[in-house]
């Protein structure tokens, strides 16, 4: 199977995720962009694992997935806590502290 284009796809996915985190203002969308970044990482690991005939990448993927799930759980909890106080999940509204 041809896998040489996969890291490139992953790089594009990662960039979309990273740009999304920086430009989007809704906390939920930012969370989704972070998930996109982590999935790009998984894709990179999987393709090179295949290319290099090594297991390390596969094992890394399992840990990344686990961590992503734990992070999403905590992150959504935090967003809900913020939403209850302010009725908004917009990061621009979260501005009590500056400088």
């Amino acid at each position: 199977m041809m896998t040489s284009f996969l890291p490139l796809v992953a790089a594009v996915l990662f960039s979309i995720g990273a740009v999304g985190v920086l430009v989007r203002r809704n906390a939920i969308v930012i969370l989704m962009c972070i998930e996109l970044m982590l999935n790009a990482v998984n894709l990179t690991f999987a393709s090179y694992s295949y290319e290099l005939r090594s297991m390390t990448g596969h094992i890394f993927i399992f840990f990344v997935m686990t961590v992503a799930a734990a992070e999403a759980a905590v992150g959504l909890g935090i967003v809900i806590a913020v939403f209850r106080k302010r009725q908004s999940a917009d990061v621009d509204d979260v501005n009590l502290m500056r400088w």
């Binding site: 990273a18 906390a27 969370l31 905590v74 979260v94």
Partner: peptide, 16 residues
């Protein structure tokens, strides 16, 4: 709340 949100978003980003 605000501190947790900012810390979480930037922390998760840096994890990625």
């Amino acid at each position: 709340n605000e501190a947790a949100m900012k810390y979480f978003l930037l922390g998760a980003f840096s994890t990625g």
